[in-house]
Amino acid sequence: TTFEIRVGDLRITLHNADEEEIRWAEEALRRGIHADEILRTLEERRR
C-alpha cells in the first residue's frame, strides 16, 4: 500500500507503512524534518 502525507507544501509518500510509522512520519514532517531523513529513519527502524 502507498500512503501520502501532506503538511502544507511538504509531501512524503510511504510504501507498506503501518499506522505507527505513518503517525510518526506525519509528526516528523510537521516538525520540519526533511523527507529523506524520515525515509532513512523508517528504513533503519524496520531492520
Rank of each mutant, 00 (worst) to 15 (best):
I33V: 15
R46N: 03
E27G: 08
I22S: 05
H34R: 09
D9I: 09
R23V: 08
L42H: 02
V7D: 07
F3L: 15
E44Q: 06
L14H: 00
N16H: 07
E26V: 05
D36F: 10
A17M: 09
L42T: 02
E37D: 11
N16R: 05
H34I: 07
R45H: 09
E20H: 02
G32E: 03
E4D: 10
H15I: 12
E27N: 12
A17S: 04
R6N: 14
I12Y: 14
A28R: 05
F3V: 14
I5R: 00
L42P: 00
L29A: 08
V7S: 05
R6P: 03
H34M: 13
D18P: 03
I12W: 08
V7E: 07
T2K: 11
L10H: 14
R6H: 11
D36S: 12
I22C: 04
E4G: 00
R30W: 07
D9T: 01
R11T: 14
T41W: 13
I22H: 04
R23N: 09
E44R: 03
G8P: 01
R45N: 14
H34Y: 13
L42G: 00
D36T: 10
E44D: 08
A28Q: 13
A28K: 06
E37R: 06
T41H: 07
A17R: 03
A25F: 05
R40H: 15
G8M: 03
T1M: 10
I38F: 03
L14M: 07
L10W: 07
L29E: 02
E20R: 09
E4S: 01
G32Q: 02
R47E: 15
L39F: 15
I33D: 02
D9W: 04
R31F: 12
R40D: 10
E43Y: 07
D36E: 14
L29D: 01
E26W: 13
R40V: 11
E27P: 00
R11G: 12
E37F: 07
R45A: 13
E44F: 08
D36R: 06
L29V: 08
E26D: 07
D36H: 01
E21G: 04
E19M: 11
E4T: 06
E19Q: 13
E19R: 09
R40G: 06
V7Q: 05
E44I: 08
I38P: 00
V7W: 10
T2A: 15
W24N: 01
E20Y: 09
I38R: 00
E27D: 11
T2G: 08
T13M: 09
E43F: 08
G32F: 04
L14S: 00
R23Y: 11
R30M: 13
T1Y: 14
D9F: 06
E26A: 13
R11A: 13
E27F: 08
R40W: 14
R6W: 15
W24I: 10
D36W: 10
R23D: 03
L10D: 14
G32M: 03
R30S: 15
E37I: 10
A25M: 06
T41Y: 12
I5Q: 03
A17V: 14
T1D: 13
R45Y: 09
H15S: 09
T13W: 04
I38E: 00
A25Q: 00
L39S: 06
A28E: 14
T1F: 11
R46V: 04
W24H: 01
H34Q: 13
R30G: 09
E21I: 03
R11V: 11
T13V: 14
R31T: 09
R46I: 03
R30E: 07
A35M: 07
E26Q: 09
E19N: 08
T2F: 12
R6C: 04
R47D: 12
R6M: 13
D18W: 09
I38N: 00
D18Q: 07
L39Y: 15
H15F: 13
E19H: 12
W24V: 02
R11C: 06
R31M: 15
D18S: 13
T41E: 15
E44A: 05
G8C: 02
L10P: 01
A17H: 03
F3K: 10
H15W: 13
D36V: 05
E4I: 09
R31P: 00
D18R: 08
R47Q: 15
L39M: 11
E37K: 08
D18H: 08
E44H: 02
R6A: 07
L42M: 03
A35C: 03
E21L: 02
E21M: 04
L42E: 00
R46E: 03
L39P: 01
I22F: 06
W24Y: 15
R45I: 15
E43T: 03
R6Y: 13
E37T: 10
W24R: 01
L42A: 01
H15R: 05
L29K: 01
E4V: 08
N16L: 04
G8K: 06
W24D: 01
T2P: 12
E20N: 10
D9E: 10
L10N: 08
G8L: 03
A28W: 12
T1C: 15
G32A: 02
E27W: 13
T2Q: 09
A17N: 03
E37Q: 07
T13S: 06
E21Y: 02
H34A: 04
W24E: 02
E44M: 05
V7R: 01
F3E: 09
R11D: 05
A35E: 12
I38S: 00
E4P: 04
R45M: 13
R46Q: 04
R11P: 03
R46F: 04
A25G: 03
T1Q: 11
I22G: 03
E20C: 14
L10E: 13
T2V: 10
I33S: 06
I33Y: 08
D36M: 09
L42Q: 01
R11Y: 13
I22M: 06
E26F: 12
E4F: 04
E43S: 07
I22L: 08
I5T: 02
F3Y: 12
W24M: 07
L29H: 03
L29R: 01
L39T: 08
H34E: 13
E44S: 05
E19D: 12
R45V: 11
I22N: 01
I5E: 05
E19I: 12
L29M: 12
I22Y: 08
F3G: 05
R23E: 14
R46K: 07
R23H: 10
E43M: 11
D36L: 10
G8Y: 05
R6F: 14
A28S: 14
R30A: 09
N16W: 07
I5M: 06
V7P: 01
L29T: 03
R45D: 07
R47K: 15
E27L: 11
R45T: 08
E26H: 07
E37V: 12
I12R: 01
L42K: 00
E19K: 11
L42R: 01
R45Q: 10
F3M: 12
H15M: 13
R40Q: 11
